[in-house]
Design a protein around this nucleic acid. Structure first.
Lengths: 207, 207, 207, 207
DNA sequence: TATGAATGAGTCTTCATTCAT
DNA sequence: CATGAATGAAGACTCATTCAT
């Protein structure tokens, strides 16, 4: 039952956001009364926490693990991130929109939960990797290692979240996960390269 | 008076989102009664439309104009877009967060207003420009012209909206508009290049 | 309208206590919707405050004034108190039960309001008067000046509040305000007297 | 187990009143589920009855017995009552506040339970004793025998219930049970006396 | 033009109660 | 014996909306 409630909750969260999801709607979706939600979770805040810990974190975990396990050089980090996000999105298509609304938006309910409790060191690790690459001449000097992390997100999570929009806008149902991944890696690999002559050949930022 | 109401409305929209902005709060901010808002706009939806047309569109207009005026080649479009967004953000810092919340998020109140009424042809123009560049061998074949538009947004509007987050996360108060612009252009210029040996020299996608 | 709402509120307060009075019941009594109460008072706490300040305090005021105006000797204070309470009860029969429930009972909503804001100096004034009388030999040495204040209340406000009980218990509908007053004064006058031989003659604690 | 539940119930009753005590809180205090309470008592009303019969009545019983055993003259009754209440309060300090809230207050849950089931004859016995004393000239003619019972309660139970208030109000922590008892007896003994010259000598209403 | 008054529907939450196990 | 699960009714409070003036 508990799992059913959490499912219903996250379904609503995705559709109308955490703030917009009324207990009544969640309860109706689960086929129970609103009082049941209080019975299981106490109040809305705790229910949200349950959703985070039982659905959101497990969904993100492989991405985190993938990055931590990756080679600490720029190429390795980029590839781990892009593929980690790709897998995550494929498995949990609801995640990017939720992430946009509840992490990126001001006042988002998950922002703190995510950055304080969970992946606080991940961005730093990435930034450090990029800084090293740049120091060693393997990343274009005009780039900023920290902004590189932002760009990485803007080229993966953001397109995933906006997919419904651009799919409709461009009638782009032909663009699958593979095309998207190739596009993203191409842009990053070349974009980050130090501009050496073979930058485009193997498609690899050498790290 | 009307202008005062619209001002108050957008001020609230920025702070707590459109859904989160109660008519009472808006009225209080404007120093009038909630009934006034109904008197002027009819209902909340129409008031939102008014805000869009009288504040949002004028703010976006220069960007649109800049892109339409730009050379229709890839480099020109990219540059026009990046600088257009840069100027827009500088002038209207409230725009990116609002855009994220109300356009990117599902159920966003401005999504339709923006794409149906206003800039429906802009993305197409960009995509067409990129497709041409690619066909002429001036854009990497692994890239997708339509996705390129998405990437463009993910590298400009998205970082602007997420600035509060990454600024705090990286204690990156030293990163100003110029650094950001250079970073973005560097990534795009090199990333889009066809991989020719001089891709990195002048930093220019030749378009 | 406001006055009507306050009337309805105090009517409910008397019947079921402040905590027990639901906004719905008050609204129904006033013939309006619960939302009206919020419209006028904001929330329940503020409505309670309004009731206190617009009904309770004015009802108590004459008692306070009477005691302050009385001769500061024991007899004068006693008489002013007994008659002040008598008048007050006659005019506002709802007051004693409310006082019991909301001032005497632990957690009563008016306790602070009454003692902090209103009549904080009244009990002290009484106690001081009694202490002086005792020091001058005009009050029995076994009595305690401060407890005398408590006894005063226990012989006036308390019987008034318990009237419904003892009226029914003793089928004592024949006992009117005058009998009650004579009884109370007799008990106090003699009880407080220093035991002098003429204590009962004029019925007066000489103060 | 049953006893444990009753204990928990009365503990809550004292703290927040009968109306304010939720079954959940009582159950939690007893370390069981709310359903247990229904299992044992059926519903809240019956549980209240159980508390009355198994805790309240036994606590009051000695007072009742003391009065019934006392000499039926005024002095004896007064003394038995004052000391009975004194002992009771000392042994069960929770009783006066509960009594105020649940007996004296309108709608009190124990009023009927107390007067219908338990001590209905006690007040009558006291009143009869006082009437006799008055008829024989041993009680002041201005007093009313029935009101005398009320006064008795107002000078014993009421001060006990209000102790927290007047203790704080007068910073009267120095007033102990003995002082209180002496005060009360002095007031009653002299107050009731017929005004004869030795009224104050032995401190006794001769009955 | 402007608003004070009023409300129905909806928000989260608490409660006493029931029932199958 | 005992309880976990479940609920309907009610709690205070907020909201967008209407309407007479």
């Amino acid at each position: 039952m508990r799992a059913r409630l959490v499912d219903a909750a996250i379904a609503q969260f995705i559709r109308v956001g955490i703030q917009g999801a009324s207990l009544r709607a969640i309860a109706e979706e689960a086929g129970v009364t609103p009082a049941m939600l209080h019975y299981y979770f106490g109040d809305k805040r705790q229910m949200t926490l349950a959703v985070v810990q039982e659905r959101l974190l497990p969904a993100i975990e492989p991405l985190r693990a993938g990055i931590e396990a990756a080679a600490p050089d720029a190429a390795g980090l980029v590839r781990a991130f892009v593929e980690g996000v790709g897998d995550m999105v494929e498995r949990h298509p609801w995640l990017p929109p939720l992430w946009i609304r509840e992490v990126l938006c001001e006042g988002g309910a998950l922002r703190d939960a995510l950055f304080k409790g969970l992946i606080p060191k991940l961005p730093q690790r990435l930034a450090r990797g990029f800084a090293t690459a740049q120091a060693e001449g393997r990343m274009h000097p005009d780039l900023d290692p920290r902004l590189m992390v932002v760009s990485l997100v803007g080229l993966t999570l953001f397109p995933a979240a906006g997919a419904p929009i651009w799919r409709q806008l461009f009638t782009a149902d032909d663009i699958g996960a593979d095309v998207l991944r190739r596009h993203t890696l191409a842009l990053l690999d070349h974009g980050m390269g130090a501009g050496r002559r073979d930058a485009g050949r193997r498609g690899g930022t050498t790290g």
